[in-house]
C-alpha cells in the first residue's frame, strides 16, 4: 500500500475574476518508507499541497489518500497518524524546550517516554537546553525541536513543509542526515524545499512550478533525461563572459552557476574548439572550459523555460 496517493488534485484561490490556480491537476504516489521531495520555489504550490494532505485544506477537485485514508472523509484517522511541521516552525516561544515537547506529545495522545527512542538522536543535541524557552533558541535548534515535536507520537507519515528555509548550510546538512536516519525507522517522509541542491538527498522528487509538476522521478533519472551536453565555462571576467556567451550564435542557454557559467549549445556537434575560438577572439583570458554532469537545478531551469514557452 502506498503512503500517499494523489489523483488530479486542483486547488484555486480567490474570487472568480482573479482566480489563482495554486495546484493544477497534481497526481503522484509515495511508497511506504520513501523519502520524497517536493521541490520548487516559493509560490509553486508546495504549502497548499501539504495542507491538503494533512487535511487542513479541501481541494477543489481530485482525491488524495494518506496511509490508506481519504483526506476528506476520514480526516480524523489521518490526524491520528501523521506528523506535520508547518513552514515557520510552530512552537510556543514562551514555553521551554521540554514543555513544548511534552505538550505536543500529550496532545497526540503519547508521551516523551513512549517514543523517546525515535527522537533520541535528535533530542540529545538540544537536551542541554531543555529548560530554555523555545524563543531563545537558534534557527537550527528550533528546527530540531520542531522535528522532535512532529515525531514524538511516532507518525506513520511525516510531512515537513520547508524545514530548511532560513537555516544555515550546516544545519541544513545535519537536518538531512537526521531524515536519512528516520527513513531507516520505516517512516515515510514528504519534504518540500526551495533549495535545488537538496533534491539529491531524496529517493524521488517532484519538481513543481506554478502549481504544476514538471517532472517526477529519482534525482538520478531526472538528470539523465537531460540529453544535451552541459558546458561549464569560466574566465577572469565572469560578468563579461556571461554577456558574451549569451550573444554567441550557437548558444541555446547560458546562465551563471557558482564559479562557472553553464552553457547549452543549440547544435551539439560544435564543441570545445568553436567556443574557445569565440572567447579568444573576444580576448578573454584564464579560460576554463569543460563538460559537466547537469544537476537538478539545471534540469529545473530547462523544464521551467520549456513550460514558459508553452504558455
Amino acid at each position: 500500500m502506498n503512503s500517499v496517493t494523489i489523483e488530479h488534485i486542483v486547488k484555486k484561490y480567490g474570487a472568480k475574476k482573479e482566480q489563482v490556480t495554486a495546484l493544477n491537476d497534481i497526481s503522484f504516489e509515495v511508497a511506504k518508507g520513501e523519502l520524497f521531495g517536493v521541490i520548487g520555489p516559493d509560490g509553486a504550490g508546495k504549502t497548499s499541497l501539504f495542507r491538503i494532505l494533512t487535511t487542513l485544506l479541501l481541494a477543489d477537485s481530485g482525491t488524495a489518500m494518506v496511509d490508506g485514508f481519504d483526506v476528506v472523509k476520514q480526516y480524523k484517522n489521518i490526524r491520528n497518524r501523521v506528523g506535520y511541521m508547518p513552514g515557520k516552525f510552530s512552537l510556543y516561544q514562551d514555553l521551554s524546550v521540554e514543555e513544548n515537547l511534552r505538550f505536543f506529545a500529550t496532545i497526540f495522545n503519547s508521551s516523551i517516554k513512549e517514543n523517546y527512542e525515535l527522537i533520541r538522536d535528535i533530542y540529545v543535541q538540544i537536551e542541554p537546553f531543555k529548560d530554555r524557552r523555545a524563543g531563545k533558541l537558534s534557527g537550527g535548534m528550533k528546527q530540531k525541536l520542531a522535528l522532535c515535536c512532529a515525531l514524538i507520537h511516532r507518525p506513520s507519515v511525516l510531512f515537513l513543509d520547508e524545514p530548511t528555509t532560513g537555516v544555515d548550510a550546516v544545519s541544513r546538512k545535519e537536518f538531512w542526515e537526521m531524515l536519512k536516519a528516520l527513513k531507516l525507522q520505516g517512516i515515510s517522509i514528504l519534504v518540500s524545499t526551495p533549495y535545488m541542491d537538496e533534491a539529491g538527498l531524496c529517493d524521488r522528487v517532484a519538481l513543481i512550478q506554478s502549481g504544476k509538476i514538471m517532472s517526477i522521478d529519482s534525482p538520478k533519472n531526472i538528470t539523465q533525461k537531460f540529453t544535451k551536453t552541459m558546458w561549464a565555462v569560466s574566465s577572469a571576467e565572469m560578468y563579461r563572459l556571461l554577456n558574451d556567451l549569451q550573444q554567441y550564435n550557437n548558444t541555446e542557454k547560458c546562465y551563471a552557476f557558482g564559479e562557472f557559467h553553464h552553457l547549452v549549445l543549440k547544435n551539439d556537434n560544435e564543441g570545445k574548439d568553436e567556443i574557445m575560438i569565440y572567447l579568444l577572439y573576444l580576448s578573454h583570458h584564464e579560460i576554463e572550459l569543460k563538460t559537466v554532469q547537469p544537476n537538478i537545478e539545471d534540469c529545473f531551469i530547462e523544464l521551467m523555460s520549456k513550460s514558459n514557452h508553452q504558455q
Binding site: G40, P41, G166, Q209, A256, F300
Partner: peptide, 20 residues
Amino acid sequence: DEPTGGVDPITRREFWNLIY
C-alpha cells in the same frame, strides 16, 4: 540581507544580473 531566499532558479539569476 538574504535577498534571494525561496526564489526560483531562473529569477535568482535574473536577480544577480541586476546586482552585476
